Structures are given as C-alpha cells and as structure tokens.
Simulated scan of single mutants.
Amino acid sequence: MYYVAHRLFAAHDRSLGALVARKLADQAGHDAVFLPFCDTDEEDLVAPVKGRRLFELDQIRLRTVTGMIAVLHGPSLDDGVCMEIGYAAALGVPVVVLTTDFQTYSAGEQTDRWEFPDPLVEALATRIVRVDRLGKSGEATDRFDAFAARNAAQVELATTAAVNAVLTASQRPRRLPVHTVARPGTAFLEPSPYAPYPTALHEAALTQVSAIVAPSRFTARDSLVAARSDWDAALQTEFLVLDVSGPESPPGAALLAGAAVALGRRAAAFQPRPTYTHAHGREPNWRNLMIQYGTGARVGGPQSLADWLAS
C-alpha cells in the first residue's frame, strides 16, 4: 500500500494530491494507493467525533504502507504531512518527499543550507525530489496561458520523478530503524523555533524525570548528522514533550509526534495559547487533527506538564 501525504485544506492542494495518486495508481494499481480526504470520504463522512475518526482511518492505512510520497512546500510545512512522515520513518517505510519550492533554508547567511526549514525532514527522507524550475510553455502564446503551462509542466515532471522514486525504493528490503528500549525517567524536549526555549517547562519536567534531552541540529556544525542524532535520542527517551507553538506545529514536533504514535511512546503537546480550527461536521481542533490525536495530552504550562509526567 502506498500513501500520498499532502496538505488537505484547499482545492489546489487536494488536486495536486490527486494527480500524484493517479500517476502512482497507474503503475502500482488502483487499490494499492491511499489518498487521504478522498479515501476517507472526509467531506461526507459522518461520525460522533469526526476528527478522531479521520485520525483512526489514516492510522490504519499508515500501519500497512510500503512506501510514501509526501508533498511539502513553503516555509511553513504542513504539520499533518510531517506527522505522517514521522510515523512512516519510525517504521522504516521509504518516504519520497516531493517539492517544487525554489527556496532552501539555513540558520544563518553562511551556514549549511537545508532542503526544508527543519533539517530533520531531510534526514528522514529516503529521497527528495525537488523540481524548482518552470517547464516549457509549449504552444501557448498568451503570457498567462504560457505561465500556467510552464507550471503544469513543472508539476508533471516532479510528480513522475516522485512516483518512479517511491516505486524503486519500496522494492528494496526494508531496513527497520534500530530503536533501543526507552530509557526510564528521561524526556526529550523539542522546542518551537517560533518561541523562546521553554525554560520553565524544562525545570518543571526535571521535578518528575531524571534527565532532559534537547535537540542540537539547529546549532551544530553538521546539521544533518545532528538531526539524525536528535531523532535517535528522542526515540530512546520515555517521554516526548513537543512545543507546538506557531502558525502550524513546527516540523520537528510534528515528525516526532508521528514517531510517538507509531512506536507507542508517550508524547505531550505544549501549547500555551491555543487557537482552534473548524470544519464542517468536525469537532474543534486545537491543532491539526493528526497532532491533536497523535499526542496523548495537551499541556498549557509547567504544572500541567509535571502532572502529566507524574500520571
């Protein structure tokens, strides 16, 4: 089963996801591809708690995938897609990340450049397919038609390359990541790049655990090596404390939330100022529903974190 992970909230994003799924199905078979929103019948689905039901349906599929194409673009990465990438990566599923974004990222003007705002995405991807230049306009003469055609050609090329990449990667023997048994009494604290380091959380956590581990990839000389080290360190701790502050849950927090679900690790989302999203027939969500139901708790401050750790 192949899984197409993509942003869901606008028609053009869903259309791109459908294009990827169609091309993949043409080669792998119609029943071998799962496309969220489409295959969960999200618009017409009726359930007592619709968001939770959608999470459950997606998780059932994630447990069975042999390959994933994840579509990511822009400086604010979709947190649901990142969560799905983290889930797949924790199970050793090959993940091909597709982007037509022409931007790359870094922590400073002269430091290493990353393919995405968080180097952890690059560290977990089996392959990144980046097609960042417009294609040819073909026969179009009107400048707007020509520009649209050049974008369509770019997307076509990128999609074809991603499909070929995931089919090739999924044929190789799966090499499961080696996750040692979580060390009791340890916690990994993933801060948000949009907020100051939560020192008060750190101090509150130390009242309940023996050691706090924090990431190093944003300041290390070799960010990719550090990103892999952060991933391994996080999955060797008993608790994951994920600061999801920001316009969307930061990529690192979302990736680790997915891994926590896949591996059955305890994870809490720290969000001191929740904002809610609303969709037809769905309960209010304080973050992307994949994050809301992929973490075991939402904590708003130091005391609630200490209480969660002690529970």
Score class of each variant (00 low, 15 high):
5 A>M: 03
6 H>D: 12
7 R>D: 12
7 R>L: 13
9 F>C: 04
10 A>P: 02
19 L>A: 08
19 L>I: 11
22 R>A: 11
26 D>H: 08
29 G>A: 06
30 H>N: 10
40 T>L: 03
41 D>M: 09
42 E>I: 01
47 A>D: 08
48 P>L: 06
55 F>N: 07
56 E>K: 04
58 D>P: 01
58 D>M: 07
59 Q>H: 09
62 L>I: 10
65 V>P: 00
68 M>Y: 03
69 I>W: 00
76 S>R: 14
81 V>D: 01
83 M>C: 14
88 A>M: 06
89 A>E: 11
94 P>S: 05
94 P>F: 08
95 V>T: 08
97 V>Y: 08
100 T>H: 05
100 T>W: 03
101 D>I: 04
105 Y>Q: 06
108 G>W: 13
110 Q>Y: 11
111 T>E: 15
113 R>K: 14
114 W>I: 06
115 E>W: 07
115 E>I: 09
116 F>T: 05
121 V>H: 05
121 V>S: 00
123 A>F: 09
125 A>S: 06
125 A>M: 03
125 A>F: 08
130 R>V: 12
145 D>V: 10
145 D>H: 13
148 A>H: 09
160 T>C: 04
167 L>P: 01
174 R>W: 11
174 R>T: 15
176 L>C: 07
178 V>P: 00
178 V>F: 04
181 V>H: 09
186 T>R: 02
192 S>C: 08
194 Y>G: 09
196 P>V: 14
199 T>N: 12
201 L>K: 06
205 A>M: 10
207 T>N: 00
213 V>N: 00
222 D>L: 07
223 S>I: 10
223 S>F: 02
233 A>L: 10
235 L>E: 09
237 T>W: 01
243 D>F: 02
245 S>M: 09
247 P>V: 13
256 L>D: 01
260 A>Q: 03
261 V>I: 07
263 L>C: 02
265 R>D: 00
268 A>S: 08
273 R>I: 14
276 Y>I: 13
277 T>S: 13
281 G>W: 15
282 R>A: 15
283 E>A: 04
284 P>Y: 13
287 R>D: 15
288 N>Y: 08
289 L>T: 06
310 A>C: 10
310 A>L: 03
310 A>I: 08
